[in-house]
Design a protein around this nucleic acid. Structure first.
Length: 770
DNA sequence: GAGCACTGC
């Protein structure tokens, strides 16, 4: 394929607009800072005692000092050693070599500017693009000025992802020349690597939110840094709302919002004109190409583009963004096949194609870091690798060596429809910010190219600037419960950056009221308080808390854990039949929940525990998911013990063993019930009257009139997945408030429930009359 | 007779 043809398909973008943002450093500062660092309370030369941990150092002559105003110069001096300013120990050679590279980072050039701003204002917004060093350096800059050890406090820096919190903490501990978990540590679910000496703590945003629920003013911290705020995770959004109030109650608390996009003005405005400091990133230029005409089939266009790049562009790896597992596996097969043909016909270089998505086993994910294949013969055309990935490569994983990015402009995104109370995944156009982030992936090691499979006009006019924050796309039942526990009573006036639709809030309140977590006045009930102690969706928490009443809390505990982790059943395309046969071995005729419980019990059994990994592989089960379930189970069990929720079981021989579990299911999921309709082919959901089908993966036969379901899946059809048969009289008995039959709209469900009610009443009358 | 982007407590 000629270079000429390649060019004709893509209009070369003039280097304006977006690319200018990339090339020109951002406005260095929009805040006119006066130097305020000359304030007398500085660290005496040569002394390091202001930095050593007050609770442990023995020469704490300066430990009574108030908040310091350190200058960049002073901090540098302290950093230069020879002793570690925080531990008093000898600094290692590695420390000094890392220190040199740290001082080359773009943020370092603006250290004084940062300190001036930090000292002057309680809240500040910091913008730093990829490669600026903000995540590792800013918290350390703060450390040298804040000196939290002198007041027995800590600096917190939040991350949206656990791996990031872990790896950044590891890196910063190295930079500070301390043991991870001592002065520098991290805290994520299931793992707290901090200790009494910890003064800088990286943590997930969810973790800090959990802490806030028991300590509304976050008194353990002197400075809180919310990193990657532009990602707008649910936890970050709530933390921002919360901290906006906390900084007013606590004048001694400092807050830094760190973001990677220029949208930072929005953060600035939200925090009442907080000053903003922007530092340029360090990336290579990326040339952007657009298609002149819209593409009808983006997958087909993507394949064509990848092959064209392979045939015509110089050495360099390719990253293609697609939306899901199946699409990706399919594309990988096709690219490999076509590329092989090109090798035969046109003497092309070798190409290796790797899929990348979240549910891929870690070992296979690691393969994307393998080097590109060598030429077929010495001096021949160089090989390249092509990675076909979901959005995971946009934020969570960075791959060096990518020179070409192919961006069809779509991703799967969660959407929530409050009218039918359904969360689902939908293939949707990405935002401008996402497109920019994707393009940037081509310029990490050297100048690159990004091929957008949409027109420049579409980019400008059709793509929204930023993706909608998660808070606008989610069911907020657990969020509302959390807010109540956080002491936010007036939800409507709680100042969120993007307030959710009133209907979404109403739905959440209604759901929590039916679950008896909120009373009719919207106040947190005892059950609601208890439920908020569990890191679970409210329905799951209520099911777990109610389970002792059904003599099966041990079993419901296992089931709750299983329902909070990814799917345990594995069904590879190459072995569907065998996988299904294996699943049948665990099947329980009354439904998928009980089947999952059978799996878990087998997994915990002696024969599986001999070699659990092998056993899972042999039985087409996900070892990772089951292990995770074990972990979650332990965590939940500890909370149950602490909160004195009894752990009991019905003897397995008892004929009520399974029935009790099914009844307990109803206690949490009575709002997720469907009844078979008159045709007998499909089901109708209770109250919402949605037509749904049993998901084909279910073990349940077609003869169950009433079922509870765990989730609603909206794909080619409306499916309910993970379903178990229940009896209608249990619904009336266990959730009488929700099953107030007279309040139901006319229809089959109402008639059936009336009939059941009458039958129950008649039986009661007879029993009473005897 | 199907398909789950991603993250988190």
């Amino acid at each position: 394929m000629a270079e000429e043809q390649q060019r004709s398909r893509f209009k070369r973008q003039k280097m304006t607009g977006e690319m200018d943002d990339r090339k020109n450093p951002y406005l260095a500062h929009m805040y006119d800072a006066e130097s305020s660092h000359d304030s007398g309370v500085s660290i005496s030369d040569g002394s390091t005692s202001a930095y050593t941990n007050g609770r442990h150092s023995n020469g704490g002559g300066l430990s009574s000092l108030k908040r310091h105003s350190t200058t960049a110069k002073q901090a540098k001096l302290a950093e230069d050693g020879p002793l570690n300013p925080f531990t008093g120990g000898q600094l290692s050679d590695r420390y000094f070599s890392i220190l040199k590279t740290r001082r080359d980072l773009p943020v370092h050039a603006q250290r004084q500017e940062f300190l001036d701003m930090y000292q002057k204002s309680q809240v500040l917004v910091f913008v730093g693009e990829t490669g600026s060093g903000k995540t590792t350096q800013i918290p350390q800059f703060v450390l040298f000025d804040d000196l939290p050890q002198q007041r027995g406090k800590m600096i917190a820096c939040t991350q949206p992802r656990r791996v990031a919190a872990m790896s950044v903490a590891q890196r910063v501990a190295q930079e500070a020349d301390v043991q991870l978990g001592e002065e520098v540590g991290y805290s994520i679910r299931f793992e707290d690597k901090t200790g009494p000496k910890t003064i800088l703590k990286y943590m997930t945003d969810g973790m800090l939110l959990r802490e806030a629920m028991n300590d509304h003013d976050l008194l353990r911290y002197s400075t809180i840094i919310l990193d990657e705020a532009h990602e707008r995770t649910l936890a970050t959004d709530i933390l921002m709302g919360l901290l906006k109030e906390v900084v007013q109650r606590r004048p001694d608390l400092k807050l830094i919002i760190m973001s990677a996009t220029l949208d930072a003005q929005k953060f600035q405005k939200y925090f009442l004109s907080a000053p903003l400091l922007a530092v340029p990133g360090r990336t290579h230029p990326v040339e952007i190409f657009y298609t002149p005409e819209p593409e009808r089939d983006y997958v087909e266009a993507a394949l064509r583009t990848v092959l064209q790049i392979d045939a015509t562009e110089p050495e360099g790896d390719i990253l293609l963004f697609l939306t899901g597992e199946e699409e990706i596996e399919d594309a990988c097969r096709k690219i490999s096949l076509e590329a092989d043909e090109m090798v035969r016909e046109a003497d092309a270089g070798p190409i290796k194609v790797y899929p990348l998505y979240g549910t891929l086993p870690p070992a296979q994910q690691q393969r994307i870091f393998d080097p590109a294949p060598p030429p077929f013969k010495p001096g021949g055309r160089p090989g390249r690798k092509c990675i076909v990935s979901t959005n995971i490569a946009e934020t969570s994983l960075t791959i060096d060596g990518i020179v070409y990015v192919v961006d069809p402009g779509f991703s799967k995104q969660k959407v929530y429809n409050p009218r039918i109370r359904v969360e689902s995944l939908l293939v949707s156009p990405i935002s401008k910010a996402s497109a920019q982030q994707r393009a940037g992936r081509a310029g990490r090691t050297r100048p690159g190219k990004c091929f957008r499979l949409y027109t420049e006009g579409a980019f400008k006019k059709e793509l929204i600037d930023q993706s909608y924050p998660e808070i606008l796309r989610s069911n907020l039942a657990s969020t509302v419960l959390e807010l109540k526990k956080l002491g936010i009573d007036d939800l409507v006036h709680f100042d969120l950056m993007d307030p959710p639709a009133p209907e979404t809030l109403m739905r959440a309140l209604e759901e929590l009221n039916y679950l008896a977590c909120l009373d009719d006045e919207g106040e947190l009930t005892a059950l609601g308080k208890l439920a908020s102690d569990f890191p679970l969706d409210p329905a799951l928490a209520v099911m777990l808390i109610s389970s002792p009443e059904f003599y099966c809390s041990n079993e419901i505990l296992s089931l709750t854990a299983l329902l909070s982790v990814p799917q345990v059943f594995v069904r590879p395309a190459s072995a569907r039949k065998r996988a299904d046969e294996m699943k049948d071995m665990f099947a329980h005729q009354d439904g998928d929940h009980l089947t999952m419980l059978n799996v878990y019990h087998a997994f915990r059994g002696p024969s599986a525990q001999e070699n659990p990994k092998q056993w899972c592989h042999d039985h087409f089960l996900s070892y990772r998911a089951l292990q995770q379930a074990d972990n979650v189970r332990m965590q939940l069990k500890r909370i149950m013990e602490r909160e004195e929720v009894e752990l009991v079981s019905t003897p397995f021989e008892d004929k009520k063993y399974y029935e009790n579990i099914r009844r307990a299911l109803v206690a949490g999921f009575f709002m997720q019930v469907a009844k078979k309709d008159s045709s007998g082919k499909q089901y109708i959901t209770v109250k919402d009257n949605q037509s749904v089908l049993l998901h084909p993966s279910t073990v349940l036969g077609q003869d169950s009139e009433w079922v509870v379901y765990n989730e609603f899946v909206l794909t080619s059809k409306n499916y309910i997945r993970t379903v178990t048969a229940v009896k209608p009289e249990w619904l009336l008995d266990i959730a009488p408030g929700y099953y107030d039959v007279d309040s139901f709209g006319k229809g089959d469900i109402k008639t059936s429930l009336q009939r059941v009610r009458d039958k129950v009443n008649r039986r009661a009358a007879i029993a009473g009359g005897r």
